[in-house]
Simulated assay, not measured.
Amino acid sequence: MARRQVDEVRDGVELTSLDAEAFDGAGVTKRALLDHLDAVAELLLPALADRPLSVVRARPGQAPFMQKNLPRGAPDWIPTVDVWAESSQRTVHYPLCHDRRTLLWFGNQRAVEFHPTLVPHGATTTGELVIDLDPPDGAGFERVVAAAHPVRAALAELGLAAAVKTSGATGLHLVVPLSEQLPIDDAFAATRAVCARAAALAPDIATTAFIRDDRGGRVFLDPTRAGGATLAAPYSPRARPSLPVSFPLTWDELDGASPADFTVGTVAGLLDGRPTWSELRPAPAALQEVLLTEGRAIPVPRVAAMHEGKRRKRARERGA
């Protein structure tokens, strides 16, 4: 097999096809993707360290796909951790991304999105809550921004505060630092309670309905991001035209922001003088016990949705 032409070498990593489109419809080159990853490496890598990493790869002629296992033929200097996947009943060999060299290697493999787990490998506690705001299909970004404000208000009533970033797609991610470590199940419970309180403050805008058909055009406040769940890392691109980036914002910037403002072509030029994601995170605060009490009384969304789906199916069958 003929050896592919090497266009450039960075940190010992051979980079190829740099002037080709990153993926079909990207509108930017693979070089632009790698230049972005290089520019944000010092900001992105801390969010990836010690966390099993899933990536979204985008090859020409193929739809983007999620990759969890480190592929065969990967360099032996990329460490992995083995995680049992209950849903698929198999062991997944997740890569860890600790350095620029690994980040560039993934970029050369056309890994566009970087989704680490929300806690390091083996951790049973967490020091933060994460709320993912997911707007309905076709909604403008202003809709999800409007839903972020009642979440912020609900947190403030509890003495908590969140940092905010664009998801890089259509949503927002809110991260709430805590002053003490929580067991993962308690983090889920507390997040359910915060989301329920926020939805009650703005029921016409936000919802906690896990079943999409029940959301009625409202923004879904997703309380399922904790523990081994994943989230697009800050400064990670997304596999969409122009490669938008998950970008940290101040709350003052949020109302005037647009995801289109933050792409692999623009972010490097926006970093100078801006606070970083770690600097935008508010001071950790104590979690009130009432949140755990409220959250434990709220059914786990995925389980509740499964039972509700079965109930509705039985009702349809009886009515047929």
Rank of each mutant, 00 (worst) to 15 (best):
V6S: 08
D7R: 05
D7E: 09
D7H: 10
D7P: 01
V9K: 12
G12V: 05
E14S: 07
E14Y: 11
T16K: 15
S17F: 14
S17R: 13
S17P: 02
L18T: 02
A20C: 11
A20P: 01
E21R: 01
A22K: 01
A22E: 04
F23V: 00
F23E: 01
D24S: 02
D24C: 00
D24V: 00
D24N: 02
G25W: 03
G25F: 02
V28N: 04
V28C: 14
K30Q: 08
K30V: 03
R31Q: 10
R31T: 02
L33S: 02
L33T: 00
L33P: 00
D35N: 11
D35G: 03
H36K: 05
H36V: 02
L37N: 00
L37H: 03
D38G: 11
D38W: 15
V40C: 04
A41C: 08
A41M: 11
E42R: 12
E42M: 06
L43A: 07
L43R: 12
L44W: 03
L45P: 00
P46E: 12
A47Q: 10
A47F: 08
L48W: 07
D50C: 08
D50V: 06
R51Y: 09
R51G: 01
L53H: 05
S54C: 09
V56G: 04
V56T: 13
V56Q: 07
R57V: 10
R57C: 05
R57G: 02
A58Y: 00
A58H: 01
R59D: 08
R59K: 11
P60C: 06
P60H: 10
Q62C: 05
Q62S: 09
A63I: 02
P64F: 06
P64Y: 08
P64I: 01
Q67N: 08
K68F: 06
N69P: 03
L70R: 04
L70K: 03
P71C: 11
P71V: 08
P71A: 11
G73H: 13
A74R: 07
A74S: 13
P75E: 12
P75G: 07
D76P: 04
D76Y: 15
I78G: 02
I78M: 09
P79R: 12
T80Q: 14
T80V: 15
V81D: 05
V81S: 04
V81G: 02
V81I: 09
D82H: 12
D82I: 07
V83Q: 11
V83S: 08
V83M: 13
V83G: 05
W84A: 12
A85W: 15
A85K: 12
S88L: 14
Q89D: 14
Q89F: 13
R90F: 09
R90N: 09
T91G: 07
T91Y: 14
V92Y: 13
H93K: 12
P95H: 10
P95Y: 14
P95Q: 12
L96K: 03
